[in-house]
Design a binder for these strands. Structure first.
Length: 85
DNA sequence: TAGTTGACCGGAA
DNA sequence: ATTCCGGCCAACT
């Protein structure tokens, strides 16, 4: 039984190229629909090269943030993969 | 152990 | 439509 953090990382890693998911969706799949803040905290402090955190965005359509080059880099990656903002 | 923080979300003004 | 407020969760100090 993986912890919430492990579950979140595994889920984000499973996001296909060109797809974008909200923090709330990731939290819901991980087991806590209201743990969007926890997901954000995990992403912000625990980035893994296997976990494409840039595919996780806010429900408002905002990019949220990116600890690997800034929001501009995140937007560029999403556009490069064919995702919409 | 308890308090504070943060890449959030939903509802109300 | 935009802006403000409260509430939820995990990690850090």
């Amino acid at each position: 039984m993986p912890t919430f953090t492990t579950a979140v990382k595994d889920i984000v890693r499973a996001i296909p190229k060109g797809a974008v998911v909200t923090y709330g969706e990731v939290a819901a799949v991980a087991g806590n629909p209201k743990a969007a803040r926890a997901v954000a905290n995990i992403m912000a402090h625990n980035y893994d090269p296997d976990v494409p955190c840039h595919r996780v965005i806010r429900t408002d359509g905002g990019l949220g943030g990116y600890s690997r080059g800034g929001v501009a880099r995140k937007c560029a990656i999403l556009l490069s993969e064919g995702a919409s903002i």
